[in-house]
């Protein structure tokens, strides 16, 4: 029996699940306010720009975006199997592919700020 290479993505999944449990609810609440046309001060261009211009801010945004994607890709792979889809390889390639592209794009946009 060959050992699985799943640990590679499982590490990202577990880290992402934990991180998003801590941060995603409050972030969704903040952008929910923006969705009502009443964004809090932090979302003003000057403030958010200053946050993302700082390398710590960049790192935070990068990690949250990237790990959200890896977490979702890995968990949805299991969920879709549970829903009866059996094209596991295609689902894995698509999900992890989107996560990898999203990770690269996040880094690319953030260094430009």
């Amino acid at each position: 029996m060959a050992k699985s290479n799943k640990p590679l993505v499982w590490g990202l999944f577990a880290a992402g699940g934990t991180l998003t449990a801590f941060v995603t609810p409050v972030l969704v609440y903040v952008t929910l306010m923006a969705a009502y046309g009443d964004p809090p001060a932090a979302l003003d261009y000057e403030n958010i720009q200053a946050f993302a211009a700082n390398w710590l801010g960049k790192l935070a945004l990068f990690v949250v975006i990237s790990l959200s994607l890896w977490f979702a890709a890995h968990r949805l792979r299991t969920a879709l199997h549970g829903l009866g889809l059996r094209a596991d390889t295609a689902i894995a390639v698509a999900g992890y592919g989107i996560s990898a592209v999203g990770t690269v794009l996040a880094a690319y946009y953030l260094v430009q700020i």
Binding site: T20, L27, Q49, L61, V64, S68, F71, A72, L76
Partner: peptide, 23 residues
């Protein structure tokens, strides 16, 4: 519980979109 991850993922893409706009 597993499907909640879909919304975490979409929200990640929404954040990515925001960062793109910011840049």
């Amino acid at each position: 519980q597993e499907l909640t991850s879909l919304f975490v993922g979409i929200y990640g893409i929404l954040l990515l979109w925001g960062v793109k706009a910011l840049s």
